[in-house]
Computed example of a mutant assay.
Amino acid sequence: MSRVIHVFRNPDRFIVGTVGEPGDRAFYLQAVQEGRLISVLLEKQQVQVLAERIIALLEEVHRRFGAELPDDDPIVEDLEPLAVPVDEEFRVGTMGLGWDADASCVVVELLAVTEGEVDESVVLDDTDEGPDSVRVFLSAEQARDFAARAELVISAGRLPCPLCNEPLDPEGHVCVRTNGYRRGVGIAPSAGEPSQD
């Protein structure tokens, strides 16, 4: 069976969002164009890498080709949640990123997880063999907006412990800096009760 490549040349929306509670969130990328919706599942680290690489790509394109860059400090206008239903098309394995000089846009390709290694020649290519993928073409402004929203979504997780910087669960956590005492979240000891710090 030949691969399926979902192409979004002028998406109405390309965002990252989550489903679930902090500490147990599933990360999704969604592309929407003219009523067509695709959602793919990926790891938080993949979202972070993609956002960082998009910013680096925009800066490189500006440096090498003089392409206009959108504002460095964008205001994220699309704060709406993921469109529902969130039906996972596939889990992302390999990601590709490029610059289409003819269209002056960023090209993001998300390829499905496969059991074997992915041949690099299938990334950003229309070959019939290879994993299914989602290919999205973004203006520089759309790409910058995607990266800015991704940073907000990533940082909206669990708060870090002020002592060890590890994520805090709602029940607290065993902090290495307190010799194993369990730290609560914002719970102060009662009068006459010994502190666990």
Score class of each variant (00 low, 15 high):
Leu79Phe: 06
Leu152Ser: 02
Gln46Leu: 04
Asp12Met: 06
Glu129Arg: 07
Pro131Gly: 07
Gly93His: 00
Gly23Tyr: 04
Leu82Arg: 03
Asp73Glu: 15
Val86Met: 01
Arg63Glu: 14
His62Ala: 15
Gly192Asp: 08
Met95Glu: 03
Arg64Glu: 15
Cys161Gly: 09
Val61Gln: 02
Pro194Gln: 05
Val49Arg: 10
Leu42Ala: 13
Gly23Glu: 01
Pro162Gln: 09
Glu117Gln: 09
Val113Asn: 09
Cys164Lys: 09
Val136Tyr: 06
Glu43Cys: 11
Ile15Tyr: 06
Leu152Tyr: 02
Leu69Lys: 02
Ala191Ile: 11
Phe27His: 08
Ile5Trp: 03
Leu97Glu: 01
Glu151Gly: 04
Thr114Glu: 12
Leu159Val: 10
Leu110His: 03
Pro81Arg: 07
Glu109Lys: 07
Gln45Arg: 07
Ser39Val: 08
Leu163Arg: 12
Leu124Trp: 05
Val40Asn: 02
Asp169Ile: 09
Arg63Leu: 15
Gly186Tyr: 13
Phe90Glu: 00
Phe146Val: 04
Glu151His: 02
Leu168Ser: 06
Val153Gly: 02
Ala156Gly: 05
Thr94Gln: 03
Ala148Asp: 01
Ala143Ser: 01
Asp72Pro: 01
Val61Pro: 00
Glu151Ser: 08
Val16Leu: 03
Val86Thr: 05
Leu41Ala: 10
Leu29Ala: 07
Glu60Tyr: 09
Leu57Ser: 12
Asp119His: 08
